[in-house]
Design a protein around this nucleic acid. Structure first.
Lengths: 211, 211
DNA sequence: CCTGCATTGTGAACGCACGCACAAGCTCTC
DNA sequence: GAGAGCTTGTGCGTGCGTTCACAATGCAGG
């Protein structure tokens, strides 16, 4: 499920606070979801708690990390180094979360060759080499909308396993490549929509955009 | 629905290309969704197309903008000016989409008073004044996780109508305030999860995707 | 004016996720 | 050792969104 990262963060906080055991109810409160959902999610993963006591934070954390694939590093390449791309490149959360940035690509000749957070900006022609060389698993698209599909195709061809798209455009990829989209402008419009409609439900749904 | 921004962008592209009429099938292809869904969404909005012909791009675009609340400006204030906050402040998509940034707030004394994309960085104590003065409707949280809830409370107290949260933390707000969350680290973990599960459980996944 | 074609609008079935509510099971106390 | 008190694990009902399939409807051409 798409809630696992939430649980992971809550569990990490708990461990950091020295808590060794947690009930589904407390965890649900921290993650902002329903308690039954928490229990069902974990039971679905085959992870077991102790009735009458709760879940062991340390053990559960390891299990969640295993399922999330966080036990190994997933190298990331960022394509497109405008404002957003540069912010992403400088974002600390990547390395901390096991997603080291190992490559930066941009088509602008003025940017190619410049240094950014310890990496040299490479031209698109080097994409395949970077992916192969560093075992890149995730490609991040931070280009303008116009180039997004082209970049996605190149990433797939180069062999990345999944794609995170920040460009405000619909891109299509083969079924076997997980694709998620983050679009700030869209989020704002959705908010605006709900504000307009007043008291409608604003549940955020984990939609998987794929084709 | 949360798909309206997608339709809006597709329609804008079509208009830009000089297309005056579009079928639900073509529009579905552009937006990356099902054709029946497109028709149902529009019928739900009370917007009408013409059978045998399709939808009139121009008219539909106006209708969508009306529902999205894009006929008026929704001023935005950004709280937290780290890497992400600065990228957001510099992001062109805001102004273009009808969400002008009218205020920047950060708690760091070193940042307060500095100039950024035409705005002076203000301390948190000025938040309420900024919101009231500019009629701010949307608050954007781009602080570290630790301060997110506090900022959210301040934004709600100041009277913003909706909140977009980029901090990697669960924040709770009153029911009447729409809240959406964008979390890059979470998105990556979700991708990693799918990639992991795809390998371990290909068969089940293929069956489900078969629809 | 009438027939054929294209496309919308929607009724209905399907599937999925959510959440309640309860039984199963562990632990602690007396 | 037995009972009380929690907390997990889960079967089941419910509601929502998605999608199929078809009837309704407008347009073009003869």
């Amino acid at each position: 499920m798409a809630r696992l990262p939430l649980y992971h963060r809550s569990l990490a906080d708990l461990r950091h606070a020295g808590v060794t055991t947690v009930s589904s109810e407390r965890l649900a409160e921290l993650a902002g979801v329903n308690a039954a959902k928490v229990r069902k999610d974990f039971s679905y993963l085959g992870t077991y708690g102790t009735r009458g006591v709760g879940y062991e934070v340390e053990y559960l954390l390891v299990e969640v990390e295993r399922v999330l694939g966080r036990t190994h590093l997933s190298p990331v390449v960022i394509v497109g180094l405008g404002n957003l791309g540069r912010a992403l490149a400088a974002y600390d959360g990547f390395d901390d979360g096991g997603f080291p940035v190992v490559g930066l690509v941009d088509a602008d000749p003025a940017k190619i060759g410049t240094e950014l957070v310890g990496h040299r900006v490479e031209p698109p022609s080097e994409l395949a080499r970077i992916v192969a060389e560093h075992g890149v698993e995730v490609g991040i698209i931070a280009t303008p909308a116009a180039g997004a599909q082209q970049v996605a195709d190149a990433l797939v061809a180069a062999g990345v396993r999944s794609i995170l798209n920040f460009a405000p455009a619909v891109v299509t990829v083969p079924d076997h490549v997980p694709l998620r989209k983050v679009d700030v402008a869209t989020e704002l419009q959705i908010l605006s929509f709900y504000a307009e409609r007043g008291d409608l439900d604003v549940r955020q749904r984990a939609e998987r955009t794929a084709s």
